[in-house]
Amino acid sequence: MEIVMVHGYFLRGTGSNLFVANTCRELCKLGHQVKLFCQEEKPQLFDFIETAWDFDRHNHNITIVYQQATPYPGKCQLYRPNLNGFLPVYVYDNYPGYVVKTYSDCTPAEIEAYIEDNRRALDAVVDPGRTALVLSNHSIMQPVYVARSRLGHCRHVMTVHGSCLNFSVRHSLLLKEYAREALANAEWVVFISQYSRLEFLAFFDNDPSLYAKSLVIPGGVDLKNFISLNGSSEKQAEIDGLLARLAAPPLIAGQPSAATALWQTDEDVVRKLGRIDFTDEKIILYYGKYLWTKGVQLLIAAAPLMLMKNHRLRIILVGFGSSRDYFETLIKALDQGDLAPLSH
């Protein structure tokens, strides 16, 4: 089966990025042929990507930029539309090589130009007659340019991710109309949880037609990555292996900053992790994006109370995002007993 996966961003870091990467890998394992449209610039990091192609500035012609043998019966071709350096997002972050604006700050002309760049890319490569299924992500704008492309009459399943609704569509009547355009074209609207489904339906006034074609498909767990360890010796072996991989030169790239890539590893990460007693300490781990909506600040604020009751407790925060500086300032203020920096 030939499947087109439409994702306007990358394959690392955020929940929707990881969702798309893992879904494409599983589709390839099942023997499907996948055409993946996204902005991922490092295809060599993904074992399921057979070839990667870049578009010219008009999104009419493509040039192969990467090729490798893959271990799966199905093959994935990655196509990177040329956005002419402009990337609209739901939550602001710095992405090197792009002028980044949140959708709420974009002009209608900028939004239409972005949609048109991606529509041209789709129409230049895909064959609706051979496409059995289109999988789009978020409620704007990926399913919008699917609807406007030659794929508009293909079977279309749209997966909703929370950041799009809560940071963009909820705050703009224009973006809500784009979402309605996308929803009208999708045959099914998929949610990762029942909570997100009900939240989305409520925002669209519990529209009966939307209710009828919405369903929940949990993201699941990759049991090859998330496994139970038998005893402290197995745990220590895993930790030692992790530290060895992190110490490898390609991964240590300095402290992240606004001017550098988002997924660089902190240069002192091995030293920090080496101080942790994973056998005897009680670990609370946060893994995700650094956003206030995730509640990280609540965990930090509660840390002194928890540490008073359990001196062997350690809280580990792993992630990236624009709120990192704020969270580090909050930690420093609590540690020094001086809340003045938080007032600025």
Rank of each mutant, 00 (worst) to 15 (best):
43 P>N: 11
44 Q>K: 09
45 L>D: 13
45 L>A: 13
45 L>H: 15
45 L>I: 14
45 L>N: 12
46 F>I: 14
47 D>M: 05
49 I>E: 04
49 I>S: 12
49 I>K: 11
50 E>W: 06
50 E>S: 14
50 E>L: 11
51 T>K: 15
51 T>Q: 14
54 D>E: 08
54 D>R: 11
55 F>C: 12
56 D>C: 11
56 D>A: 09
57 R>H: 12
57 R>K: 15
57 R>Y: 13
58 H>P: 00
59 N>C: 10
60 H>Y: 10
61 N>A: 12
62 I>P: 00
64 I>Y: 00
65 V>F: 01
66 Y>F: 14
66 Y>L: 00
66 Y>R: 04
67 Q>Y: 01
69 A>L: 01
69 A>H: 00
70 T>D: 01
70 T>V: 15
70 T>N: 04
71 P>L: 02
73 P>S: 05
74 G>V: 07
75 K>F: 02
75 K>M: 05
77 Q>F: 07
77 Q>R: 12
78 L>W: 04
80 R>G: 15
82 N>G: 08
82 N>E: 14
83 L>Q: 15
83 L>M: 13
83 L>W: 08
83 L>F: 07
84 N>T: 10
85 G>M: 12
85 G>V: 05
86 F>E: 09
87 L>W: 07
87 L>S: 05
87 L>C: 05
89 V>D: 01
89 V>F: 00
89 V>Y: 00
89 V>Q: 07
90 Y>A: 15
91 V>S: 12
93 D>E: 14
95 Y>C: 10
96 P>T: 10
96 P>F: 02
97 G>L: 02
98 Y>K: 09
98 Y>H: 05
98 Y>R: 11
99 V>I: 14
99 V>F: 04
100 V>M: 02
101 K>N: 07
101 K>S: 08
102 T>M: 01
102 T>N: 05
104 S>L: 13
106 C>E: 01
108 P>Q: 08
109 A>E: 03
109 A>I: 03
109 A>N: 01
110 E>C: 10
110 E>V: 14
111 I>W: 04
112 E>F: 03
112 E>Q: 11
113 A>S: 04
114 Y>S: 08
115 I>Q: 03
115 I>K: 06
117 D>K: 12
118 N>A: 12
120 R>V: 07
120 R>S: 13
120 R>Q: 12
121 A>P: 00
121 A>V: 03
121 A>T: 04
123 D>R: 06
123 D>E: 03
124 A>S: 09
126 V>W: 01
127 D>E: 06
128 P>W: 00
130 R>M: 09
130 R>T: 11
131 T>C: 15
136 S>Q: 04
137 N>R: 02
138 H>G: 07
138 H>I: 06
139 S>W: 00
139 S>M: 10
140 I>K: 08
140 I>R: 04
140 I>G: 02
140 I>L: 09
140 I>P: 01
143 P>E: 08
143 P>L: 09
